[in-house]
């Protein structure tokens, strides 16, 4: 079956009786470590999480930024999360329902993503890459990529950043 990362398909899948979906929704437990960086001027990083599949448009799962700033001011620096902005962000509207979130403090940050909710699609088996990018004001930027094969039941992937990101891992289950 050809996989399409569109909201329409997600909706169709949700409504379809033939395909497994909401009854046993795919759940991704994501763990992103934001290292404590001892600098005079520290700002919590903007972080974007997205899913890539060859031949498909990238799909944003989560963006942490200054979502509450007055007049949408926080969106002004979204383009600094550069790879994500080009892959997906620039075609989106903000705030994005179920995708936008506030910036997070240093430490291990957990997030649960459920297929069919927010930006998380129901995945068909195949090769994917989960990408996490962090960009910090008056700081650096780093991208961590986690390629994985989804077999329809369970997968775990782990990677580690060197500067703006610590350990990044996820478990995807159905």
């Amino acid at each position: 079956m050809q996989f399409r990362l569109t909201g329409l398909t997600t909706a169709a899948l949700g409504a379809g009786a033939l395909l497994p979906n909401t009854a046993a929704a795919q759940t991704m437990d994501l763990s992103i470590e934001l290292p404590r960086i001892r600098v005079a001027e520290y700002h919590k990083p903007y972080v974007a999480v997205w899913l890539e599949k060859e031949g498909q448009p990238a799909r944003t799962l989560s963006v942490w930024y200054d979502v509450d700033k007055r007049g949408g001011e926080g969106t002004k620096w979204l383009h600094d999360v550069r790879q994500w902005w080009r892959a997906s962000g620039r075609t989106m509207g903000f705030p994005a329902d179920g995708i936008s979130g506030a910036t997070r403090a240093p430490g291990v940050q957990k997030q649960r993503l459920v297929a069919g909710k927010g930006g998380m699609p129901a995945l068909t088996p195949g090769q994917y890459t989960l990408v996490v990018e962090a960009a910090r004001e008056v700081g650096g930027r780093e991208v961590v990529r986690l390629p994985f094969a989804w077999n329809g039941s369970s997968v775990t992937a782990t990677a580690k950043g060197a500067s703006e990101l610590g350990a990044v891992s996820f478990t995807l289950k159905r």
Binding site: G71, G72, E73, T75, K76, W77, L78, H79, W85, G89, R90
Partner: peptide, 8 residues
């Protein structure tokens, strides 16, 4: 050359 947001 590349900006985000709606008023820049």
């Amino acid at each position: 050359t590349v900006v985000s947001g709606t008023d820049n």
